[in-house]
Write a protein that binds this DNA or RNA. Structure first.
Lengths: 338, 338
DNA sequence: GCCTGGCACTCTGTGCGTTCGAGTGCCAGC
DNA sequence: GCTGGCACTCGAACGCACAGAGTGCCAGGC
């Protein structure tokens, strides 16, 4: 096990490196932190830390920089979560007050988070798995063409065009609309399939094909709707990534464009508490030089979605974690109120 | 006026510079294009072109690069719009086929455009100002609570909650729904206000307040939703910007994050035909080193929204313009079909 | 046993001078 | 009006020396 002082040296290295972006040497360390020992001693400690894989030197005779493993230890054992300053708290509140709808809340949140952490922010829309159906509407646009409109209790609306296998009269349409609504309104998405399963049977033979088509489109829409959306912001902060950044930034931008990757990224985060993935801990290769700080948020006690930031492994972990946690809390409050 | 050959020299300079990203000299020019004259002659022509402001030298004794003014002339007079290759055409069709709803169409379009041009793509959602109403639906959620759903001919759906001043029965609701639809379906948004103006009068006194409320919400929705949304994609293509790119890319990313800026950008484009804004022609400072190629698209003969790409001024204008135009056409077709 | 000062060594970054080559401008001649 | 020739300019590339920061190791002291 590492001695107390060696941990202290690691902490100092992480802090200095995060601040200066430059490899930190033994002399500079003793000058900036009063460790109570001489550079030579620190050098010995550094040698041990390097053997253990917590720090590395870019070149012989350069200072040390933390490895992913070093950051990991730092985050787990050495760093707390820095509470926000009160101006920051106020900024959060001001920023989120006055949001008019869900899109607006999510949009403001992502901007806020990006601004606060000076990194790339990712916010997932509240998940719909627990949503219920408020209304299903069927409109006849042409004899063999319908439009399906699905309204959820979170105020989201989805619509789909349907080409019917056969013309469908107004009477069966009204009938279908009424039956459909009486069965599914107020129900959870997940329960809908069983509830409508036997509907086609109660229609005339010639209409059954159409009814089946409508139902399959409805079910499809429900499934798709459950797929979670997310938005990102603050990509211009990627420019603060480092010096060798053209080569670093490319895969990150690419990864950020793929919703699937991001969803997986946030999804990996455990439900409770904050998750920090450092460098190679991220499954996606393009994000191997980044760290992801994510946390769940929600209107009640349950987390309904996640939010977080993506930044260079060399980031201010305590500050970032503090900001992410605080934003998640405030957003949860806002959602609970509305 | 510039002689034929001088224009030819300018064209050659633009083409070479776009290809190589390096200042092009007189000797290289004569080797790569058979201009039929010697380097010395080309040098004289270059001197003239430089005097006129079409090209510039980064340093004395370096080759020339086109200026914004040079690109402008190139686009206006020297370059056509390059038609797409047939594999590209097929790619477009395959890419857009199978889109399930408007979000999907727009999402696919932006990815397609980014991929095709290898630049940043911007697609505006079909605007509602010139759109027509396909259907208005009124749903009763509670005795004094309605939901208004507005469906446009571009497939966009907007919904609003309405708290009624008084309970509203099913019969007047059906009545209102029918009358509303018979008056506004197929009409343009702008015409709706007059068309519904006198509707309240034909209802019982007790229902008039509610009808007025519904109408005012409808009109509000029409106005509000004229605010246009847009999405962007292909930001990772920014990494192909150039060598000094860290400094270039920053303001571009920032500009791209501001919807307002982008909307203005697309809005500046004239209604008919394709618009190319080169470098400093862009009002926004952050985009002074980029060019924007934009064009309107729509389901019918009229454009209902714009789409385009943002890239370095040093871009392949004919190819980009070809791709943008082709995509706009196909999207228009897709929209018209649905 | 651990810390310390000292010392030799190893790199990188920087500044400087030189060279090389691409490119220019200009001029005289065809 | 085009061309070949020529002197000139200037940036990129290279080599080189040097300063500075940092390391590893060792012998000595508490």
């Amino acid at each position: 096990m590492l001695s107390e002082r060696r941990l202290e040296v690691l902490r100092a290295i992480v802090q200095d490196y995060v601040g200066t972006e430059e490899p930190v040497g033994s002399k500079a360390l003793t000058e900036r932190h009063n460790l109570g020992v001489s550079p030579a001693t620190v050098r010995n400690d550094m040698a041990v830390l390097e053997d253990e894989g917590f720090i590395a030197q870019p070149h012989t005779s350069a200072g040390r920089i933390p490895t992913d493993k070093g950051y990991r230890l730092f985050v787990d054992k050495l760093a707390g979560v820095k509470p926000l300053s009160s101006p920051e708290r106020r900024a959060i509140q001001n920023f989120l007050v006055g949001a008019v709808d869900l899109d607006d809340v999510v949009g403001r949140t992502v901007r806020l988070l990006a601004q606060l952490t000076r990194q790339v922010a990712v916010v997932q829309y509240p998940s719909l798995t627990r949503s219920t159906v408020r209304h299903v509407e069927l409109l006849s646009l042409a004899p063999a063409r319908l439009m399906l409109v699905l309204i959820t209790d979170t105020g989201r609306v989805e619509q789909r065009m349907i080409d019917c296998p056969a013309p469908f009269g107004d009477a069966p349409l009204a009938d279908l609309r009424a039956r459909l609504n009486s069965r599914v309104v107020g129900r959870r998405f997940a329960d809908v399939p069983q509830l409508v399963q036997d509907l086609p049977e109660s229609f005339e033979t010639e209409d059954r094909a159409t009814v089946s088509t409508v139902l399959s489109v409805l079910l499809e829409t429900l499934v798709e709707e459950t797929e979670e959306r997310l938005i990102i912001g603050g990509t211009s902060n990627l420019t603060r990534f480092g010096h060798d950044f053209p080569v670093m930034i490319r895969p990150v931008l690419e990864a950020l464009e793929e919703q699937v990757v991001l969803l997986k990224l946030l999804g990996e985060a455990t439900d409770s508490g904050m998750t920090v993935r450092i460098g190679h801990e991220n499954a996606h290769e393009g994000l191997n030089s980044t760290s992801v700080v994510a946390v769940g948020y929600g209107s009640g006690d349950e987390a309904v979605a996640k939010l977080g930031v993506v930044g260079p492994t060399r980031m201010d972990y305590p500050g970032t974690m503090g900001a992410v946690r605080a934003v998640a809390r405030y957003v949860g409050q806002i959602l609970a109120e509305s």
